[in-house]
Amino acid sequence: MSAELSIRNLTAGYGAQVVLRDLSLEITEGTLAALIGPNGHGKTTLLRAISGLVPITAGQITLAGTRIDPLRPDAIVASGIVHVPQGDLLFPDMTVLENLRMGSYLPAAARLEKQRLEEVFSLLPKLRDRQQQTASTLSGGERRMVGIGRGLMTSGRILMLDEPSLGLAPIIIDQIYDVIDTLRGSGRTVILVEENAMRAADIADEVHLLDHGSIAWHGKGSEMSGRPELLETYLGS
């Protein structure tokens, strides 16, 4: 198994404020990797740095051996990394269908639009009924589903989900996790950022623990549950 996404000595942040320091990380192809760690220690910044929304000051990011860190965000998406951002970031005045179709904006994805739309609707049946509804009028859970559905419409080989369960009712979280679980078999690599460390470790093949802007520990998801001291040290729970 080869490392599909490889990050070496990454330093990034907002202006003078450095958030990620000398961070290195490898994600294996076809796996579900969980990125956990306390709030404000750089999980979201890491995803935004990978997808090009945050400037990088040092280090390299390579996708299947090709460097992507000098690229602009749209070129990074075209190279196959898709970021489903925290807080959904839908297009509020577009309908659900228009939002989903924005996922297949790039030519490579546009060719498969009809087929993917069917896949998304079968995975998230609620969206089929809400197709013509304006995104700003959806409930929190529905918005999250549109966000994930929009990510699935892309041709991304790597799907990065930023806190997909944040602020949702437990029953909706279960539904979202069911969807993530089915992604595992789809051949896509999934990077899951989670506040809820146990839940993520439960589902993930590999767990990376982010602390103070760099990776403090990584291992199999099953090892995580056997090492409660990690949670205590880094997550204070």
């Binding site: 997808s51 929304l53 965000p73 998406v77 970031l89 839908l90 297009f91 577009m94 904006y105 790039l106």
Partner: peptide, 11 residues
């Protein structure tokens, strides 16, 4: 409607 989201869709 959302600059960041548009970029993440490859716009």
């Amino acid at each position: 409607q959302n600059r960041d989201a548009a970029q993440l869709m490859g716009v």
